[in-house]
């Protein structure tokens, strides 16, 4: 079953076409990467998948629910993390997580917060104000928030942006473990090519609002004759190789 299904998804702001009729689907349990340069349409696409943004045309189905008609049924089983959206700074980490336990109707909130604190090493942070945390600590807390409801679908917008390599690796390892254990479906927008290569079974390459190529990381490397995804990314950004023919 496709957990995420976008069909001819388009978003236009006046004369600007931010997302241009993209279609893709993600089966249950897969991690799919959304790759593209700044302004490629990744964040706009994620916002439409979350129901934060109404598409100009096209449709989104999440977990079988049409997001135009029945988004709240899907939202209860989804979650989201982005470094560009904060948690209230003047609440403690525990208070923040408790708020989201209520919003997602999570049973046994104290127990669930304890489980996440164990798994993400948050015990020392629970009583601290969210605004006092370092970037790495904030990312771990944001990840805990995004897992509070044990989501079936997780949408992550640059989950390791501004993290040092050690913390970035911890987050990636944790995401791999969580997906393997829960069967969660993950859509990941990122600029970090090694991260995408490591985590994603399929990659969607976006440029100027369109999906210009897609495939497994190995497929893409073979198609472009490159050693890593960063070189593939540059080929696409600069209209070289396979993408030039496609365009």
């Amino acid at each position: 079953m496709d957990v995420i299904a976008a069909d001819s998804l388009t978003k236009r702001y006046g004369a600007t076409l931010a997302v241009d009729g993209i279609s893709f689907s993600v089966p249950q349990g897969e991690t799919v990467g959304l790759l593209g340069g700044n302004g490629a349409g990744k964040t706009t696409t994620i916002a439409m998948l979350l129901g934060l943004l109404i598409p100009t045309s096209g449709s989104v189905h999440m977990l079988g629910h049409d997001m135009a008609k029945d988004r709240f049924a899907a939202l209860a089983r989804m979650n989201f993390s982005s470094p560009y959206v904060s948690l209230p700074h003047r609440l403690t980490v525990e208070q923040n997580l408790r708020v989201y336990c209520h919003l997602y109707n999570v049973p046994h909130a104290t127990r669930r917060i304890g489980e996440l604190a164990d798994e993400l090493d948050l015990h020392g942070l629970l009583k601290r104000m969210a605004g006092e945390l370092s970037a790495g600590q904030k990312t771990r807390v944001a990840l805990a928030k995004s897992l509070i409801n044990k989501p079936d679908v997780l949408l992550l917008d640059e989950p390791t942006a501004s993290l040092d390599p050690d913390t970035g690796d911890l987050v990636r390892t944790w995401l791999e473990r969580y997906r393997a254990a829960s069967g969660c479906t993950i859509l990941l927008a990122s600029h970090n090519m090694p991260e995408v290569e490591r985590l994603c079974s399929t990659v969607l390459m976006m440029k100027q609002g369109r999906i210009v190529d897609r495939g497994t990381p190995a497929d893409l490397l073979a198609r472009y004759g490159r050693e890593n995804l960063e070189e593939v990314f540059l080929d696409i950004a600069r209209n070289r190789g396979a993408v030039a023919e496609a365009l």
Binding site: F72, V85, S86, P88, Y104
Partner: peptide, 18 residues
């Protein structure tokens, strides 16, 4: 406004809160 100032609206509106 508190939700705007804390840049939390994105989280609030992707939760099932109507």
């Amino acid at each position: 406004l508190e939700e705007i100032w804390s840049r939390n609206l994105g989280h609030v509106f992707v939760s099932p809160l109507r």
